[in-house]
Design a protein around this nucleic acid. Structure first.
Lengths: 116, 116
DNA sequence: CTAACATACAACCAAATGGTTGTAGATGCT
DNA sequence: AGCATCTACAACCATTTGGTTGTATGTTAG
């Protein structure tokens, strides 16, 4: 399962952009729990079917979900790999932070040994 | 360090929205590594100072960074707590996924014991 | 074959976004 | 005091976004 492939700036833009909407995040949780058709998803929201269709399209462009035709329905499923990549990205920022804290601590330790 | 406080939909919207721009992500990494003034940040980008100012404002509204006045400068620093919350959120989606996989595995195991 | 259903997609609209320039207010240096 | 620097903020503009309605197309059930 390839997870560490570098994401381009544009891909990351799309990824976070896709996550920056409550309806879309809700769709993601729903299809993670159980893959389901677009119209089935649409039932839960106070907006037109076309609007939900667009949200799914945004998630698809971000590779957070995929669609597979089943008869006349289009079944939406979650993409765990992209989710993993998004998390990994944020974790790398956190790692940066911890590294910075660590080097500050080092400096403080040196300081103490020279002043104490 | 409070990390698990529930974020409202709007807050999460702002959070991911703020991360959905390469310039802003770059600003975040820079201020995580070392806090610095807005104009210092602005030097690195091929856009106006005002544009960078706006990006910082977006990050601030999302609580990804904070600003502190120092003389005539405004020093921007990263906010690790918000970063942690963002990561935690994505991790919870991943957890959902693993739970789903686990229950599928259970079903398969039951199936095998009845058919084998 | 026909009716109902699920989807696709275009056209349209208001609001938000990401950029610009210009002006004005604080602060620091000499 | 006077000038340069850093920031704030308004006004403006093009593009994107998130929604709508309407129409067309493919698919399944009777």
């Amino acid at each position: 399962m390839v997870v560490d492939a570098e994401l381009s700036d544009t891909e990351v833009d799309r990824l976070f952009q896709a996550l920056a909407d409550a309806t879309r995040r809700d769709i993601v949780t729903r299809v993670i729990e159980r893959e389901q058709s677009v119209s089935e998803l649409a039932e839960h929201y106070a907006m037109s079917f076309a609007a939900v269709q667009k949200h799914v399209a945004v998630l698809e462009r971000a590779s957070l979900v995929g669609k597979v035709r089943r008869g006349r329905e289009q079944i939406v499923h979650g993409d765990p790999i992209t989710l993993r990549r998004a998390t990994a990205l944020l974790e790398s920022y956190e790692r940066l932070w911890h590294q910075r804290i660590a080097s500050i601590d080092e400096l403080l330790a040196e300081d103490e040994s020279s002043t104490g």
